[in-house]
Design a protein around this nucleic acid. Structure first.
Lengths: 206, 206
DNA sequence: GTCTATACGTCGATAGAC
DNA sequence: GTCTATCGACGTATAGAC
């Protein structure tokens, strides 16, 4: 019923206080403890699988304080789940061999915090704010840096399709448990999937 | 807390009755009404965004009955959300131009019920049963029919990577709202993404 | 055999006492 | 600045009315 989260859109006004949160020093360490617990639990059990009470307990405090500090469970999630790593410097680099380097980077994130974060974010993408963040991240990491460097027709669309290919690879690592891909030789994966991505980068080849 | 759904695994024994469900005729129409409402609401608002009480209300009955008939909300979800369409006859077909035909099929499912179902399933993939269904569907639709037809090295891995590419395309249609892809000319999409997929089908080209 | 009424425990969130 | 008490809604379960 509340899935399409309409709340918390008033954050536009910069000076307007959120549902007032503590500001002192004791407050800061408590807030940090909550954030740490949230990052850990959200990564491990996802958004739906993590209760505010569990976060509070892990942080050694109370559930009411969690809400008081972060406004809502959804905002706590958004503030504590980092977006998957920095790809911009790769995407903005040389076009030659770019497909392989992108695959290499995604595989490098494997088993790291970033895969868990991606998983949690995708599964929580009922929320329009979470969706916004995912779309924005794709845009920032792939489309914006890559599209201007592409020659040939439809550069932006091709950049977005490259991003789609990478999200498909991330799906196999983070969403579906595809052991055949997870366990596959990394160099083989880079060669195969990298070549498939490179087709869109080098277009037209024919 | 309950996210990694361990329940409902006792369905192994075939004769053992589930939490007994009605069997008469009146019961069958009620069950059908619940299933219809569930399909509609789950597609529209997702798993988390749909309450058992809402399904019951839409079906003109009571939430207790919904549980009585289907055992749990999760089982209701699994029984009423159809997996995305039949790709087997395409995947098992000729390798020539297969990439294009696969993209065409995925795009054909656009704006249909199947996209909504995919979205709902991915977002509910906290549940291991839902995950199982997604993996099984990928296996049945792509890997099993395609892998035996592929020549060259790593046929199964390549089939799985083709599936990954298609799930990336589905992400752009169903999970992230990528307007640039949704609104793009269909023939262009087929040409570009189809070629990228074909690389893995025809491997090695070099 | 089919359904209604009611209840239990937990959730996110709020109000107000220390 | 922190915590207790509480709210309404949730998934689920059961007893017993028709």
């Amino acid at each position: 019923m509340n899935a399409d989260a309409l709340g918390a859109l008033d954050s536009a006004a910069p000076g307007v206080a959120r549902p007032r949160a503590p500001t002192g020093e004791k407050g800061r360490v408590t807030r940090a403890a909550i954030a740490d617990a949230a990052t850990k639990l959200f990564s491990k059990h996802g958004f739906a699988g993590t209760s505010v009470r569990a976060v509070a307990s892990d942080a050694g405090t109370d559930s009411a304080l969690v809400i008081r500090y972060f406004g809502s469970k959804e905002q706590l999630f958004l503030e504590t789940m980092p977006m998957i790593g920095q790809f911009e410097h790769i995407t903005a680099g040389a076009l030659d061999g770019l497909g392989r380097r992108l695959v290499d980077s995604v595989l490098g994130a494997q088993q790291a915090t970033q895969i868990s974060a991606y998983r949690a974010l995708v599964r929580a993408s009922d929320s329009s704010l979470v969706r916004q963040r995912l779309v924005q991240a794709q845009q920032d990491m792939f489309v914006t840096p890559l599209a201007p460097n592409l020659t040939g027709p439809n550069p932006e669309l091709r950049a977005r399709l490259v991003a789609a290919q990478l999200s498909g690879l991330l799906d196999a690592l983070a969403i579906f448990p595809d052991e055949a891909i997870t366990a596959a030789d990394r160099d083989v994966l880079i060669e195969l999937y990298g070549a498939a991505i490179q087709v869109l980068i080098d277009w037209p080849t024919a």
